[in-house]
Amino acid sequence: MMRHLLSASDLSYEQALLILDTAQEMAKVSESSVKKLPTLRGRTIVNLFFEDSTRTRISFEAAAKRLSADVINFSAKGSSVSKGESLKDTAQTLQAMGADAVIIRHGSSGAAKRLADSHWTSGAVINAGDGTHEHPTQALLDAFTIRKHLHVGVGDLRGLTIAIVGDILHSRVARSNVILLSLLGAQVILVAPPTLLPLGVEAWPAQISYDLDSVLPQVDAVMMLRVQQERMADFFFPTAREYSHYFGLNRRRLSSLKSNAIIMHPGPMNRGLEITAEVADSARSVILEQVTNGVSVRMAVLYLLLAGAPSGDIEGSVQV
């Protein structure tokens, strides 16, 4: 296994499958009455969050605790340390405390890589979202969720078509998913207004469409991205109403999906903008399950990075 998880592109096909398979084992732990393994006892894991993200932070925290690690939550947001110095200073502080792994969420693209490449900390670095770059564990949990529903939890994602809809330009979720889902053999279609697709997107392993209605009947899963209200102020689209009209998932569009297609959203949702409440709460929606699977996938990542087991059997026996 690699030392850090900074980008979905760090993963080989085999490693990605190993994480998904391991996560499946971890899911059993979460379903048992005693939700705990002794695997990472005595190891210190730091949640280093420069941005607010309660759901990602508690997901990692739950994952680490279920593996018996000691968890330190470090919310650097709003601390008095000035911007530029804070990453280095904070990292060195954590190093001095003996962190075995640092889970970092940062508003700057590349911050996780900076931390991993620096000599500021020797621990494993896990990217929990860096600016508009990547969020690899989100992509892993999405792949896990898709595989569970559409490939009965086995193998890769070959034969599946997955649409990612919305603000691709600013989405770390989209970047990681394009890399990972295509690595696992899925066909990815990005659907967005041209303003919300990055210049240079042609080089990505994905198809591009501006027309959600023509895409929906082909797909096995549709992933709706959060659209931030402030994008309107930057003229990415005219109004929220127009955005919803062309790119929102509503009841009418739901009916054009294949019967077994699933609806996903990384959260937090803007109900009424990119997705209606009715769709978000429908039987097709696996949005809450994504949250559950997030813990299992993050347990797998922590386990594989820190316990360093090459494959298969999990120390502390999951089978109990």
């Binding site: 693209s109 590349g110 860096d130 600016g131 508009t132 770059h133 990547e134 770390r172 970047r175 990055p198 210049l199 240079g200 997107v201 042609e202 080089a203 990505w204």
Partner: peptide, 17 residues
């Protein structure tokens, strides 16, 4: 932040056309 093109798209750094 950097030249706008294939590399900025991949890195998620704001493009400078």
């Amino acid at each position: 932040q950097m030249n706008e093109g294939a590399v900025s798209a991949r890195l998620g750094l704001k493009g400078w056309p």
